[in-house]
Structure formats: structure tokens, C-alpha cells
Design a protein around this nucleic acid. Structure first.
Lengths: 336, 336
DNA sequence: TCTTCCGCTGGAAGCGCTTCCAATGCTCTT
DNA sequence: AAGAGCATTGGAAGCGCTTCCAGCGGAAGA
């Protein structure tokens, strides 16, 4: 019924300013508030978003940037889960979500995002150590939260998991099982996850006073790189392989079994991510579970805090991971 | 440098109106246009989105609604691919994309979308025959394009594949191979895809004068329903099974092989969707490939047309599908 | 009882842009 | 040479809202 604040105000018999205060939580007497709220309800009035944005400088809209290649986007449920988590947290506060996927160059995407000049803030996936899009966002005045941070950057707000610690945990798990010639097929070099997991692997090996000479081969998070990486490591007679992620582990598993070796009898195998298929491999895969959905919600919350108090310094959230032990490392007794 | 149209105009020595015309394609002399464009470039000026939306009534922002349960969202690459397709087409026209996933009730989501009052139009996935969210959107004044249409609705704009025709094609393929006792494990009842594929199956069987008595068992697009559905059909001694989708087919395959029956020797098997894993099953699965990405881009384009000329009637796009024949139906000769 | 203070309210000034309208200075006809 | 017509331009009126500011009246303090 009412299309503008003025109409609604006229209906109730108050000024437009008062209606605005009711909507935005200003100081209004209880009786007036009730009358306005009643009319608001009755007419199902919705204030014009563009007008409030223009007048207030706040839009209630947050940008989400996932600049990854299309195939990765739908092959890896990570992104959908992350998006879901963000969406959940944002919708809690009735905030809108604008999404940019990687269909342009990073420069173009950056231009579009900054150009829209409408966003209250932005969440961006930052999986590479260097990323011009992330740099551009950080250099802008737009409040920004990174998912997957870059270690060198001490002023950024971010949400991440402790890749180093988790990789250390996996490695130590293998050590504790008596493995000594442990290999690692890395994730893609240049990514935060890839590099940090190498660091964690080294840390775990160092603590056990085991050498990592020749025990690290380069992978890139794909199944193929797991298959070829495993072939290399098997020639070096490893008795355990920690893979950069689950897909890599799946590839490694194929190679190991194709050579007639048993997992974990001859070679223990561990992954990272705990994607759905990890539990269905034969044998089921020991891996690290990370709460992807939580990363999304926490990123959104961090951004809200950043918006609420921009001067309180960066928000840093490190989410816990969990070592999920399955038969690819402790098999033998169990047969199912 | 310049933050408002007025500043930019002052810089060039023209009026704000003229700059606005240059930006929006109004009639301006070449020399003036060039000077303004130069200044635009030099100062990297971006007009305020909220202000233009308020003044013009157009935001350049499109809503995308995928109200599906979280697990489906990231378990099925369909949604990510669809989103990618939409994003590609939208970014071509520099249009923004606001996304709503299913984290509230449909009523709440509907309220949020209509409440924002900022969108030029909306694309919504409509996979169920009845969906209050879709109904609400259609009942609103917001230009709406459905992905996966509802057959009863003749005034809606939509993008879809010909589920009936595709299912008919698969069925006829099985018939052509000499199969006579063909079973169908349906998709989830109440979904457009589920119902239409049943219709297509019936059509194919009818044309071959084959009975469908007892040959249809209910599934729900899950692997589990494929496993149990296949068990029922095997008792009825079918020699072929057409499954509502690939996941269902994967489940059916497990059951068939667990009983010591050969695919396709004893039972031919076909799915629908051609997800990535379909080609990796053993034997690889005959299925229907649908261009999900294209559905996304076409939906966006349909919406653009709708916005350009709202009175030209509904836009209807039916995208082609392709029968992908693999060894689950024609095996025997090929061994790889 | 008079002053002070404070809570509540309305008026008004924008936020930065689009677009209508009228004015200007041409070119083209006749 | 004068009038008509056109392309181009600037002025100004909003778009619908938030928020500052001042004013009002009533409650509390003196």
C-alpha cells in the first residue's frame, strides 16, 4: 500500500523522520513506535534500498569474491560449502551477498567490484601467496576479509585453518605408527595451503629427527599428480605418504595398489580435507577434516565486526581441524 | 580524483548532465564526448551505484535464487555450474549478481528478495512442480526467469531441457538394442525432472508397444534409491534399467553387480546428467548430457531480453541434450 | 513556583545521480 | 536573407531516504 516513507508517515500521522527512526532504531516513544510498527506491518512497507544506501552510505550488501577457475569451482565442493556458510551468516543479519566468480581477468573483476561502490565490505578467497585481486582489494578502502590468509601479511583480516599444525599432526600420526620413510606429495606450489602443509610436514619430521631428503615430491592437488607423485616416492621405498589433499591421495592410492602393494600394510596413506569420497575409498582414507562451512560463517562474522568497528585492528580467526583416522593408516585389524 | 559527477563536470568544464549523457549513451557532440571520456579515464571516476539506481530505477543487479538444501548444493556440481554460467553471462554486461541460497524458509527468502527492492530481475531454480518461492516471485512485479520450468505455467519465462524427449531417447536406445523388459527408477516425485522423465520413459515404451506395468519404481535421485530400486526391478527380471539420474544409476550398478549380474550383458543401464563420475564407473555409464553451464548463460540472457522489452511476452528456451552412449548399454565388443 | 534538562518530534538539508525541459547556436530550406 | 528545424547543452526537479538541528513540552531539581 504505502510505497514511500512519506506515504507511510502520512498514514500514521507522524513525520517521515519518525518513521525512519522506528525502522532504524532511533529514539521514539513507545506509543508512536507501536503505531508505526503496526502500519509498517499492515502495509508491508519496504524502504527503498537505493535511497537508504545513498542517504546513509551503507548498503547492507557484502561482496564475495571467488576468483577460481570454473572447473575447480564445481569439481571441489569446498567453494559451494564456503558460499553456503557465508550465505548463512549473512542472511542472519539480513545482509545481501553479491558474488563474483572468475569469469574475467582479476583486474577486470577488481575494477567491477571497486566500481560498484555499493558494497559495505568484501570477502575474498585468497589461496595463492600472491594474488593481484587480493592485493587490490586490500589496497582499496573497502573493508576486506580473506579466507586463507597470506602469512606475510600482518595487517589483513582473515579466516583460515592452521595448515602447518594440521600437517604436523598428520605427520606425527604416521611417525607414531612406526613409519620412518615418510613421503609427502605437495599441494600446488605457490598456494598458502600447499606451502604451509609442506612446512607442517617438515616440522613433524624434524621433531622425530627424520630426514626429509628426497621425501618431498611436487604435486598440484590433482589426482593425476598423486598418481605420478606416488610412483616417484615408491621408488624411494617410502612406507607412508602424506598427500597435499584427498584428491592427490586418491591418485596415490591407485598407483600403490596397482603395484601390488597394500595400504596400509606396505604404505600408509593420508590426505587432507576429508571430502566426502575420502571415507569411501578402499581403504577409507585418514585425513584432516576442516570445517569449510564454519570458515564461511566466520569470515562473514569477521567482516561484520570489521564494519562495526573499523579501527579495532585486523580480525584473525584460525579454525580448528581434526585428524580423522581411518584404515588407510591404522588398518589391519579392522576389515570393513 | 573526482568523486562526484559535479566534480568531474567542473574538471571538464561542462555540466553534470552532459557527463551523465556521456556515461549513459545520450546525445553528445563528439568533441565534448572525447573530452569527458578522457577525464573519465584519467580520474578513474565511478558513478555512485546507489545514486544512479535511485534516480533511474535500474540497478544493474540481478538476483539469483537457488533455494536448495545445503547438502544438495555442494554435492551436486549442477548448482556451481549453473551459477558459473549465469555469472559469465551477467559479467559480460557488467551486471551484478546477488545470490540467495536456501538458508531461511522460502517465505523469508521471498521477503528478503522482494524487500530489497533493488533488483532489476531475478533468476530462480524451479525444480519442483510446486514451489511457493517461485510462485511468490512470479506473482511479484519482478521480472523472473525460471530454470527448470513448470509445465502448467504458460506465462512464465524459463530455460529448461527437454526432459521428456531426452528420456524418450534413452528408452528408445534401450529398445533399439533389443531390450524388452525395461525398468525405470524414477527421480524424486514432485520434481519437474522426475515427472518429465517418467513421461518420456512411458512415451518411449509406448512407441515400442512395450508395457510399463510394474516397470517403474520410485526413487529420489539418490544413490541409495538406485540400489533399492534396482533390487526391486531385478526381481521382476528386467533386462535394462533407465535411472532418473547418474547417482541413482551408480547405486543400481552396485546392486546389479553384487548379484553377480553383468552390465550390460544381463542388464543394460542408463542414467541422466552425465556427471563427471559417470564416465568413470565400471562399465562407463550411458547417460544424457545436458549443458548446465549453457542453462545458466541462457537464463541470464533471457532475463536481459525480458528487461529490455517487458511486453514481448515470456521467453522460453529449451536447450538440447545429447545421448552419450557408453559401455553400460553397448558393452561387449569394447573392453576399455 | 521557576528553571533546567531531556526525550521526543518535525523541518529541512542533503546523498549523487538521471532526465525532462527550455534555451542556444547552428545548418538547411525556401 | 529570413524562418524552420535540429543537435547539443545547461538548469532544475526530483528519486526516497537518513540525519542534523531546533523546538516543543513535560519531568525533575532548586
Amino acid at each position: 500500500m504505502a510505497r514511500t516513507l512519506d506515504e507511510l508517515a502520512a498514514l500514521v500521522g507522524v513525520s517521515r523522520a519518525t518513521v525512519s527512526r522506528v525502522i532504524n532504531g532511533g529514539s521514539v516513544s513507545d506509543t508512536t513506535r507501536d503505531r508505526v510498527l503496526e502500519a509498517l506491518e499492515r502495509t508491508n512497507f519496504r524502504p527503498n534500498a537505493a535511497a537508504r544506501t545513498l542517504a546513509s552510505g551503507r548498503s547492507g550488501i557484502v561482496g564475495v569474491v571467488m576468483h577460481v577457475n570454473p572447473h575447480t569451482l564445481f569439481a571441489d565442493p569446498y567453494f559451494a560449502q564456503l558460499l553456503q556458510g557465508m550465505s548463512d551468516a549473512l542472511s542472519e543479519r539480513a545482509a545481501g551477498m553479491m558474488v563474483w566468480l572468475g569469469n574475467r581477468t582479476k583486474e577486470q573483476t577488481l575494477g567491477q567490484i571497486l566500481g560498484i561502490g555499493l558494497l559495505d565490505g568484501v570477502i575474498v578467497t585468497a589461496h595463492n601467496l600472491d594474488d593481484p585481486l587480493v592485493d587490490g582489494l586490500r589496497a582499496s578502502t573497502l573493508p576486506t576479509v580473506l579466507v586463507g590468509h597470506r602469512s606475510a601479511d600482518r595487517t589483513a583480516s582473515y579466516v583460515d585453518i592452521d595448515n602447518v599444525g594440521a600437517a604436523d599432526t598428520v605427520t606425527s600420526h604416521l611417525v607414531a605408527l612406526g613409519r620412518r620413510r615418510i613421503g609427502h606429495i605437495t599441494g600446488r606450489r605457490g598456494t598458502v595451503a600447499g606451502e604451509d602443509r609442506i612446512t607442517g610436514f617438515r616440522r613433524g619430521m624434524d621433531r622425530a629427527h627424520l630426514s626429509t631428503d628426497g621425501s618431498i615430491v611436487e604435486g598440484d592437488f590433482t589426482e593425476e599428480s598423486g598418481a605420478t607423485g606416488a610412483a616417484q616416492l615408491l621408488e624411494r621405498r617410502v612406507d607412508a605418504i602424506f598427500c597435499g589433499n584427498d584428491a592427490t591421495a586418491a591418485g596415490a592410492l591407485g598407483t600403490i595398489q596397482a603395484r601390488g602393494l597394500a595400504v596400509p600394510g606396505d604404505v600408509a596413506l593420508a590426505g587432507f580435507d576429508d571430502l566426502e569420497f575420502a571415507a569411501r575409498l578402499d581403504p577409507p582414507l585418514t585425513t584432516i577434516r576442516q570445517g569449510v562451512h564454519a570458515q564461511g560463517t566466520e569470515a562473514a562474522r569477521a567482516l561484520f565486526e570489521l564494519l562495526r568497528d573499523p579501527n579495532a585492528g585486523p580480525r584473525r580467526v584460525i579454525l580448528p581441524t581434526e585428524l580423522v583416522i581411518r584404515r588407510s593408516t591404522i588398518g589391519g585389524v579392522q576389515t570393513t
